[in-house]
Design a protein around this nucleic acid. Structure first.
Length: 279
DNA sequence: CGTTTTTGACCGGCGC
DNA sequence: GCGCCGGTCAAAAACG
């Protein structure tokens, strides 16, 4: 956790102001502020630690839940197919907000090598990009009869001979859900990322319209073109940058802080001036 | 300048 | 054979 430990001290002692005599009150105030900064740093560090721990727990929980859902679905389908021999693609529906951030692959029973994945997006988003840790190259787009929203066709561009294809189209029932259909299997290693990141959010993040709620989102937003390595290779410097920025913003927005800072600076300047006047 | 995206053209399967 | 439709190609444009 040392990487997220940030030195938030203002280092006011480095101000190049003429210092002719010791203003004890000012020094005291500076010490008090330094202490407060240190305490804030510790709180921030603790918060970061708990946040990461919670996120770990959450992802484990979701993975566990997905596993259970898949088992249940399998059982359900097996019992259903015994009754009516119904086939075809079974979509995952009723994606909850929490689950929408994770992919829920559903095997296509009619074609064992094709499966659909539903990804929740922002309602306003028109993007047809779904992040899944692989590199995709778009090779076509079509408007189909059954759905007014266009369907995008992607090929895996990670390996030259990778046979995997992907179709992405907005769901007819819910336009905020992207339906990604994968066909074939990759003939190369997967990148590190397993998390699904709605690229439309990246796109919107570039436009500044996405509400930032987690450091992970920030990381992804700080590098919108970085479509891989989203989880394990956490660019902690980005977290630091974000936290520093957040702290600077909250500090500058805090009237108490700005008043104290103004008093401290003006006090020192005025103090110096009056000192000069005294001498 | 290499890579990716866009988009109209083309192809093949299917139903009539 | 013809038309429709989904899928793919490939040239041009855009992007980094």
């Amino acid at each position: 956790m040392e990487s997220t430990c940030i030195d938030t001290s203002l280092n006011l002692s480095n101000l190049n102001l003429p210092y002719t005599y010791k203003d004890e009150v000012l020094v005291e105030e500076l010490q008090r502020l330094s202490c407060e900064n240190r305490r804030l740093s510790e709180t921030l560090t603790n918060m970061c630690e708990s946040y990461e721990a919670m996120q770990k727990q959450l992802s484990q929980l979701i993975m566990k839940q997905n596993l259970e859902n898949q088992t249940q679905r399998k059982r359900k389908f097996e019992s259903e197919s015994c009754m009516n021999m119904f086939g075809g693609v079974r979509e995952c529906s009723n994606v909850s907000d929490e689950e929408s951030l994770m992919k829920r692959p559903c095997r296509d029973v009619s074609s064992p090598k094709a499966y659909k994945v539903l990804v929740k997006t922002e309602a306003s988003s028109n993007s047809l990009y779904v992040m899944d840790g692989y590199q995709w190259r778009k090779y076509g787009q079509k408007v189909t009869r059954d759905n007014p929203s266009p369907r995008a066709y992607f090929r895996c561009s990670k390996a030259p001979n990778c046979p995997v294809k992907k179709k992405v189209q907005k769901s007819l029932e819910d336009p905020t859900i992207l339906v990604a259909t994968y066909e074939g299997e990759h003939n190369h290693d997967h990148e590190k990322a397993e998390i699904s990141m709605i690229s439309s959010q990246c796109e919107e993040a570039r436009l500044g319209s996405v509400h930032v709620s987690s450091p992970k989102q920030i990381m992804e937003m700080t590098s919108p073109t970085m479509r891989l390595n989203l989880v394990d290779n956490v660019p902690k410097s980005s977290i630091q940058q974000f936290l520093v920025q957040q702290m600077a913003t909250s500090l500058t927005n805090d009237p108490n802080f700005t008043t104290a800072l103004a008093n401290a600076i003006s006090g020192r300047i005025i103090g110096n001036a009056s000192n000069k006047a005294r001498f």
